[in-house]
């Protein structure tokens, strides 16, 4: 079918396989221990080169499948290195650095996400010998930073370090299509945060009992849960629209991705916040998993900025200007 938003057979298989792998290797409970995610199982899965062609050592899928898988990574609150690795490999490929791309996707060259800050580059989830993918102002640059100094951050699930200075640039791009692909994947992780927070909150509301019944039976709780569901549904529908538009190089691709990237941070944060609220006291504790969603939402939201939506033509523009102005 040419016009169909159901997952294809291939897409269903890859989503199911990724979900099984993540449940096995990256349960949320792992975040209670202060250790960094080991991305090796995802590398074995091919998660960092899904949309690279087979000649390039990838799986030959499109950015649509990549978006679906990265949404699942977001749900499991995978380190931002998982996102930076996929994007950095794609950037390297796009500028003809095939060997570097292969090294990145195979984790031979680790990559961390970085943000330009007032005191230097802020490196997220630092690991030794990593290159840093800096999400700049409509610019992606993969740089060597040399030594970094770990800093106190919001918590161990989003570790931060400061890089003293930048060394050589390994690859860099301001190609709008490449930036849009990065914006799409950042948004997918944020969508995953929104979905994961919704599911955690709903499971808790169905289980936790007060006044002799599950708190999820009370309308005040139900209405928060319903809003979480609507926000996640809205964002995932836009994820599909943006991913397909980008994969097909449709004329509205930039618009769809900019809309998605604009919507994603507030949606992720609102769901993460509601997840803490619905957990009550335990939600405020570091022992529950709810707080990690808030911290990931903030970290992901900082990775680049949406293109200016009002400067892009909308696919729903009327054919004639309005006759009445007021």
């Amino acid at each position: 079918m040419a016009f169909d938003l159901n997952l294809s057979q291939d897409q269903r298989l890859i989503v199911e396989a990724a979900a099984a792998l993540l449940a096995e290797s990256f349960p949320l409970g792992r975040l209670r221990e202060a250790r960094q995610d080991d991305l090796a199982p995802l590398c074995a899965f091919g998660a960092f080169s899904l949309s690279a062609s087979e000649e390039e050592g990838g799986s030959g899928f499109t950015i649509v499948e990549e978006a679906l898988v990265h949404t699942l990574l977001g749900r499991h609150l995978l380190t931002t290195r998982s996102l930076a690795t996929t994007v950095a490999a794609a950037v390297a490929r796009s500028v003809g650095e095939g060997a570097l791309a292969t090294a990145i996707a195979s984790l031979g060259r680790p990559v961390c996400a970085g943000l330009p800050g007032a005191q230097g580059i802020l490196v997220l989830d630092p690991v030794p010998n990593a290159a840093v993918l800096v999400f700049g102002d409509r610019q992606l640059s993969l740089v060597e930073t040399g030594a970094v100094r770990e800093q106190p951050g919001l918590g161990h699930s989003v570790a931060v370090a400061l890089a003293g200075g930048t060394g050589s640039t390994l690859a860099s791009t301001d190609d709008p299509a490449r930036l849009a692909a990065a914006d799409l994947l950042v948004s997918c992780h944020l969508l995953g945060v929104a979905e994961g927070a919704r599911d955690l909150a709903v499971a808790y509301a169905a289980m936790r009992r007060q006044f002799g019944k599950p708190i999820g039976a009370f309308q005040a709780v139900k209405h928060h849960a319903a809003d979480m569901a609507i926000r996640a549904e809205m964002l995932s529908a836009q994820r599909d629209m943006a991913a397909i538009a980008l994969a097909d190089r449709r004329p509205d691709a930039a618009f769809q991705v900019a809309a998605l990237r604009r919507l994603a941070p507030p949606v992720a944060l609102a769901n993460a916040r509601a997840c803490i609220q619905l957990h009550g006291g335990i939600g405020f504790s570091a022992e529950a998993d709810a707080h990690h969603f808030v911290k990931h939402a903030h970290a992901l939201s900082r990775l680049g900025e949406a293109a200016s939506l009002l400067d892009l033509p909308s696919p729903m523009a009327p054919r004639q200007p309005a006759a009445e102005r007021t």
């Binding site: 529908a237 629209m241 769809q256 900019a258 809309a259 998605l260 919507l263």
Partner: peptide
Amino acid sequence: RAEAAALRA
């Protein structure tokens, strides 16, 4: 505008 795009989606 972004929300209207999502409504269409």
